[in-house]
Each structure stands twice: as C-alpha cells, then as structure tokens.
C-alpha cells in the first residue's frame, strides 16, 4: 500500500511537471465553454450568414438541451482525442525509456505500478471531465433557465466510464506490447473501431461500449430508457475491469 501511494505521488509529479495535467484541464475547459456558446450563438451566426447571402435559415430558438447535446458530442469526440494523446505513453514510455528497472529491482509488487498509473490517469480524467461538466452547466444555467435532466447521473456517468474504459485499454496495450503503438492499437482499434464495426449489427447495440459514446443524450431527451442502456454500461465496465486485471497479469509475466 505504501509503495502504491509513493508511486501515485510520482505519477502525480510526472503529470504535473510534464504539463499534461494543464493540457487536459485547458482542453476540457475549452470544450466546456464551447458547448453552451455553440448552442447559443450558432443560430445567430447562421441568421447573419443567411441574411447577407439572401438565404433564409429556419433555425429554432436555442434551448438548454442544445447545450447538453453539444456537451455529449464534443466531450466524446474532442475529449476522446485529447485523452488518448495525453495518456498514450502512460505505461509504454516506462518500457521504452527503461525507467522501470530501478523501481522493480526494489522488490515493488508489479501490480502497484499498474494500479498507481491507472489511478492517477483516471483521477486526472475525472477532474478534467468534472471541470468540463461544471463550465458547461454554469453557462447553460446562465444563458437559459435551469431544466430538469432525466437520468442525468447515468448519462453523465456513462461518458466518464467511456474515458476510464479507454484509459484501461491504453494501459493494457502499453504493458502488452510495450509501446505507444500498442496503446493505440488496443484503445483506438480495440476500443473504438472494433465496437463501431460491430455496431452495424443492430442487435449488438444494447451491449456495445460504443453506445456509451453516442447514447447518453437520448436519456436526457427521454428518447432512450435506462434499461436499454445499462447492458452496454455493464459490458464496458466488465471490459475495463478485464483490461486492468489483464494488464497486471501480463506485467507479472513480462521480461524487463
């Protein structure tokens, strides 16, 4: 436990001093600002373009829900890209730089290294995500009257789980193949492209992790039901857990 906490502190120092924490926060503050701004000003912008060109755009009056629609779309798209870029070297870099040798030869349980890395990455993702959510919420309440969002915890929690799922897959690839290419292979190919391809089969939708990236907004609008969504959440949580356990098992058998 002591080794795990010390390693968490080291991870924290690393993410702080290599500016990755600030990059994550900056990106997610920008995304958080973009959501309500885009919802609020896009109609006015389109009207402006339309009137100068003689075209009339029929744009409905923007609503608070439009801001949340932007939130889900931008956080999933831009957020996923930022998350993968910032964390793709999470474990792989330790192998390519050879920095683990000194630590491992102190008799440190290998699992604590993996768990410390995942803990700090997930903490940074959680913090960035909450900041993004807070900024969007603040401006949405400022521009529009507060509204009740049905199943908000499940909808917002799903996007958080999506981030944790990607971090766990990045970790697995990093340990398994010992390179950032490996991390990209498991996260981008295994975590996004494969589920996207599988989603062509409609019956898989309920269980597909990709539903977490595309489905939560439907819960807020009332078009989706939690019961349709929960199987995908459980499958994603299961894959995440399996990736973490897999990373530890692979690492325990890895030659350094």
């Amino acid at each position: 436990m002591k080794a795990y906490l010390s390693l968490c502190h080291k991870e924290w120092l690393e993410i702080l001093r290599t500016y990755r924490l600030w990059i994550m926060l900056a990106v997610f503050v920008i995304i958080g600002l973009m959501n309500p701004m885009a919802a609020k000003f896009t109609p006015a912008l389109l009207e402006g373009i339309g009137s100068s060109g003689g075209i009339v755009f029929e744009v409905p009056e923007p609503m608070a829900l439009d801001s949340w629609a932007q939130f889900f779309s931008n956080t999933v798209q831009l957020g996923t890209i930022a998350l993968i870029i910032v964390f793709m070297g999470l474990i792989a870099n330790e192998f390519s730089r050879g920095t683990l040798v000194n630590i491992l030869t102190k008799g440190v349980p290998r699992a604590s290294i993996i768990l410390a890395k995942l803990t700090v990455a997930i903490a940074v993702w959680t913090g960035s995500y909450l900041v993004c959510l807070g900024v969007t919420w603040g401006y949405t309440v400022y521009f529009w009257d507060p509204i009740t969002l049905p199943h908000a915890l499940l909808a917002f929690g799903a996007i958080w789980l999506w981030g944790v799922y990607l971090i766990a897959l990045i970790g697995l690839g990093g340990v398994w193949l010992g390179s950032t290419t490996g991390a990209l292979l498991t996260s981008v190919v295994g975590g996004i492209i494969v589920p996207l391809v599988v989603s062509i089969i409609p019956q898989t939708g309920r269980f597909n992790p990709i539903s977490l990236a595309g489905g939560p907004y439907a819960l807020l609008t009332g078009q989706g039901l939690p019961s349709d969504f929960i199987p995908a959440v459980l499958v994603t949580a299961g894959i995440t857990l399996a990736a973490v356990i897999g990373s530890i098992l692979v690492f325990n058998r890895k030659t350094i």
Binding site: K2, H9, L13, R17, G98, V101, N102, K106, G107, V108
Partner: peptide, 27 residues
C-alpha cells in the same frame, strides 16, 4: 541493490525526490 549499466531516471525529478521514491517503495 541494482545499478544497471546505463541507469534511467525520471527526468522531471530531483535526485532527492528520486531517492525518496526509491526509499519509500523499498519500505
């Protein structure tokens, strides 16, 4: 104790911080 031929460290740490990490993980 092991000293590799070309030891690799975390470049963002000072020597004191690194020894603290090594000491703590050694118990």
């Amino acid at each position: 104790g092991y000293l590799p031929d070309v030891p690799q460290f975390y470049p963002f740490m000072t020597a004191r911080e690194y020894l603290r990490l090594c000491g703590e993980v050694s118990g």
